[in-house]
C-alpha cells in the first residue's frame, strides 16, 4: 500500500465539502480520530456551530458478545440537533457499524433535517448499506481484517495515518 499523507487527504476532504456546507452546518466527530478531524474541518470550513463529539460505546451492536468498552468518553452535542444539517465525521470507514451506531445516537438528541458522512479513508469491507458522501480516499483493495488504519495527531493538531498489523 502507498504511503498515506493525512494532511493532503485532509485538504482534499475540505475541498469536497466546501461547496456543500453553510456556516450553519454542524459537524459531529466520532471518538477519537473523528473528533480531531471534526475540529480541523470546523476551522478550515469556517463553520459557526461548535463541533460535537460522539462515543458510540453505548450504541454498539457487539455489546452482547464483547461487553462494555472500557473507559467510554462523553458524548457532547453542543448545538440543537432538531432540523439541523449534520455531517458525521470519522477518520476511517470500515464495516459501517460505527456509523450506524452514531446515527442512532444522534437521533436521540432530536430530528436532524439532513445527515451526511465525511471520512478521510474508506478501507472497504462494508457490512451495512452505508456510504460516505465525502471521502478523500477509497482504497483500491479492501484492507485485510488483520490490519488497522489509525489516525494520529500531534500537539499542533497535524494529522498522520498509521497502518498497524495486529
Amino acid at each position: 500500500m502507498q504511503k498515506l499523507d493525512a494532511e493532503a487527504l485532509f485538504q482534499t476532504l475540505v475541498e469536497q465539502m466546501r461547496p456543500h456546507v453553510t456556516p450553519d452546518t454542524a459537524l459531529v466527530g466520532i471518538h477519537t480520530g473523528g473528533v480531531w478531524l471534526a475540529e480541523r474541518l470546523h476551522q478550515a470550513l469556517g463553520l459557526k456551530q461548535p463541533p460535537g463529539s460522539i462515543d458510540v460505546s453505548f450504541y454498539r451492536d457487539d455489546f452482547g458478545s464483547k461487553g462494555l468498552h472500557p473507559q467510554p468518553k462523553r458524548t457532547e452535542i453542543p448545538f440543537d440537533v432538531e432540523a439541523a444539517h449534520v455531517i458525521i465525521v470519522d477518520d476511517v470507514l470500515y464495516t459501517g457499524r460505527t456509523t450506524r451506531a452514531a446515527i442512532n445516537e444522534l437521533f436521540d438528541f432530536g430530528r436532524p433535517a439532513q445527515v451526511d458522512l465525511a471520512v478521510l479513508v474508506d478501507r472497504g469491507s462494508r457490512e451495512l448499506p452505508i456510504a460516505a458522501r465525502y471521502c478523500a480516499l477509497t482504497l483500491p483493495q479492501p484492507l485485510p481484517a488483520s490490519q488497522s488504519l489509525q489516525l494520529e495527531t500531534n500537539a499542533a493538531g497535524m494529522l498522520t495515518l498509521r497502518l498497524i498489523d495486529a
Partner: peptide
Amino acid sequence: EREVKKLPL
C-alpha cells in the same frame, strides 16, 4: 439532558 433519556445497551 438528552431529548431521549435512554441508551439501547
